[in-house]
Amino acid sequence: MFEARLTSAATLKKVLEAVKELLNEASFDCSDSGIQLQAMDNSHVSLVSLTLRSDGFDKYRCDRSLTMGMNLASMSKILKCANNDDTVTIKAQDDADTVTFVFESKKQEKISDYEMKLMNLDQEHLGIPETDFSCVIRMPSVEFARIVRDLAQFGETVLICCTKEGVKFSVSGDVGSANVKLAQTNNFDKEEESVSIEMQEPVSLSFACQYLISFTKATPLSPRVQLSMSSNVPLVVEYEIAELGYIRYYLAPKIED
């Protein structure tokens, strides 16, 4: 028996919004420790890794580990039927071929359930090595989303250069070029608005704007985003999900031909 309950459907809706642009379907691996998802996008350029810890749920029970392959468009249709403040419970029997979502309104006067067929997905799991990154940048997630959206208008590829002084995002294309420089702030009062950089050595890497835009769909999950970079390895864009876990996106850099 698997049962996981969250008092606010809004969180699950946001998680789904954060993955469904990159993935059509995904396997949710459920175990004692929580729910995990790891999947590459269709073109195998990026990787999504989601962890929702069991202790972050209001109720969590997983007698036997199970993998639930879900069509994310179908899951999205179901979650649209929940109000943000509904309690949501995800239920499945051991070896079941369906999963059930139960939505309960705050006053319990409305209870709805939606059963969805599970899919057998032959998904490839990649081993992600532990990396000591040369640069780790932390900034407001809204600021990152804004920069990516603004610059993507002017080119397909953004160059991210990180030094001790700050981080520079640059794009050039047919129209011309654009640069956004963010300095490291010493804003201790407003930690949420600060830009901080931990740097071992400077890094410059190029990435496809289109994927970065997809990653920023996770912005509603967290006020902060963390970018981790080292030369010649994928960028990691991480959003913490308060008291529940995190979503990490890995993106292969673009390399000069």
Binding site: V45, S46, L47, S206, Y250, L251, A252, D257
Partner: peptide, 14 residues
Amino acid sequence: KHIQKSIRNYFKTK
């Protein structure tokens, strides 16, 4: 001119 490599070039299949 940039080329886009697959994420598979960096992470091996488990």
